[in-house]
């Protein structure tokens, strides 16, 4: 029903106008606006507002996701170089990480990607209540991830495993006392920086999705205008995707 082709009022060509409130006819190039479900030629002087250009918003979001991938790409590059240099030490150090918590967190994030996708599917069908439930579930799983992370890091900190400038405590001290090797120290530092940066992204994502809850409640995100929610969902999938790579690289390589 939603995918029904509509005719461009200017030239009569078929347009798949289901996706956005503002479309441009592919054959005549005319900007069209959607009014009560029907496409009409945009009046002269019609300004395409940014939140009306659904496709433009998507392009912008994807470009932003590319920058995020490259940001983490730089870290993965550094990781792979040290992994090649200190293969044995990485193997030893990875044994110290708690695979159980890692697996739990992986499950949480994977499920949360599902619930955020379900939230988008729900709002497209106009089911506001279901959308809110799925969104809250996603937020809860994000928070759960961070709680797990807190306990995991806390445990490490208690055993002196934390980055530290100087040699008075932390990894600096362990390295100086030769309790760990350079390769192991590099592994733990990479672990803290990379999962820390990822954790920051989880926090941003949780805040973003919580804001989306507000948007849905106020009907700023609704059946015919859900670009914000969809882009937030894309961001959340990115957070998930990064973790899918972090998890085996740190927890499973031993």
């Amino acid at each position: 029903m939603e995918r029904e082709l509509q005719a461009c009022p200017a030239c009569g060509a078929g347009i798949d106008g289901a996706d956005s409130p503002d479309v441009r006819c592919a054959s005549c190039g005319k900007t069209l606006v959607r009014a009560e479900g029907k496409l009409a030629a945009a009046p002269d002087g019609h300004v395409e507002l940014e939140h009306h250009d659904y496709v433009g918003g998507k392009i912008g979001m994807w470009l932003f996701l590319f920058t995020e991938l490259l940001l983490f790409g730089g870290m993965f590059l550094i990781y792979s170089i040290y992994r090649a240099k200190y293969a044995k030490e990485f193997h030893v150090a990875a044994l110290e990480l708690n695979g159980g918590i890692g697996t739990l967190n992986t499950l949480l994030l994977l499920t949360s990607s599902l619930t955020v996708a379900l939230a988008i599917a729900a709002i497209r069908r106009g089911r506001k209540g279901a959308c809110l439930v799925y969104l809250w579930a996603t937020v809860a799983q994000g928070v759960g991830f961070m709680i797990n992370k807190y306990f995991e890091w806390n445990y490490k900190f208690h055993h002196g495993f934390f980055p530290w400038k100087g040699t008075s405590k932390g990894l600096g001290k362990l390295l100086m006392e030769a309790k760990i090797t350079e390769g192991e120290s590099t592994f733990y530092n990479l672990y803290f920086v990379m999962t820390g940066l990822h954790g920051l992204h989880v926090l941003v994502g949780v805040v973003l999705l919580a804001v989306m809850v507000g948007f849905v409640m106020r009907d700023w995100v609704r059946k015919d205008d859900y670009g914000w929610l969809e882009n937030s969902g894309l961001y959340w999938h990115l957070v998930d995707l990064i973790w899918i790579f972090l998890f085996p690289l740190f927890y499973l390589i031993s």
Partner: peptide, 27 residues
């Protein structure tokens, strides 16, 4: 640009946390 972004983040981690990615004395 993201690549210089992450490089500067690592430099900051290096200066503030001593992570040693670019420090030969820490491998």
């Amino acid at each position: 640009t993201p690549v210089i972004g992450i490089t500067l983040i690592m430099l900051l981690c290096e200066r503030l946390l001593g992570v040693g990615f670019f420090d030969p004395s820490k491998g």
